[in-house]
Amino acid sequence: MPNPNTPSSLVSSTPIVLTIAGSDSGGGAGIQADIKAISATGGYACSVITAITAQNTQGVSAIFPIPVEHVSHQLDAVFSDLNIVAVKIGMLADADIIKVVADKLRQYQPQYLVVDPVMVATSGDILLENSAIHALKNALLPLADIITPNLPEGAALTGKPLPKSEADMQAMIDDLRLLGAKTVLLKGGHLEQDENSNDLLILPDRVETLSAKRVNTKNTHGTGCSLSSAIASYLAQGHDLERAAFLGKSYISQAIAHSDELNIGKGHGPVNHFFEGHAALR
Rank of each mutant, 00 (worst) to 15 (best):
L136T: 09
T122G: 03
V118K: 03
I126Q: 15
A144R: 01
L176A: 07
Y108E: 04
A156S: 12
K164Q: 15
D125R: 13
M172D: 04
I126A: 14
G159D: 08
A132G: 08
V101H: 05
I98S: 08
D103E: 15
V114S: 05
L176E: 10
E153L: 06
S123K: 12
L136V: 09
M169R: 13
A93W: 11
L162H: 10
D174R: 11
P149C: 04
I133K: 07
L140E: 04
L92Q: 10
T158C: 12
A156L: 12
A156G: 04
A95C: 02
N138K: 15
S123V: 12
H134V: 15
V85Y: 13
A121N: 12
L128W: 06
V120C: 12
L141G: 03
N138C: 10
L92E: 10
N130W: 09
P117R: 09
A86T: 03
V85F: 11
Y112T: 02
A121C: 13
K104W: 00
I126M: 14
Q109R: 13
L127I: 06
G159A: 09
L92P: 07
K164C: 05
L176F: 14
L151R: 05
L127F: 10
A121T: 12
M119K: 11
A155F: 05
L151K: 05
T122M: 10
K99T: 02
D125E: 15
S131N: 12
P161H: 05
L113V: 14
A93G: 00
T122R: 13
T122L: 10
A93T: 15
A132M: 05
N138R: 14
D103L: 02
L140F: 01
Q170L: 13
T122A: 14
I147M: 06
Y112Q: 04
A139E: 15
V100C: 05
D125T: 10
M91L: 15
A155Y: 02
P161N: 09
R106F: 00
D94W: 01
P110C: 02
A95E: 12
L105T: 01
L136A: 13
G90Y: 11
A95H: 11
Q109I: 04
S123D: 13
A135L: 06
A95D: 10
L141D: 05
L176Y: 13
V87K: 00
T148I: 01
N150S: 08
D103S: 12
P117Y: 10
D94F: 06
M119A: 11
D168H: 09
Y108C: 01
E129Y: 01
S165D: 11
L113E: 00
M172A: 08
S131F: 01
A171G: 15
E153Y: 06
K137F: 13
M169G: 09
L140I: 01
P117D: 14
Y108D: 02
G90D: 07
M91C: 13
A144I: 03
T158R: 03
Q111Y: 07
D103I: 00
D174Y: 03
P149M: 09
V100T: 14
A93K: 11
S165Y: 11
K164N: 12
D103H: 06
T148C: 02
K88L: 06
P163L: 08
A144D: 04
M119C: 11
G124T: 08
V85K: 15
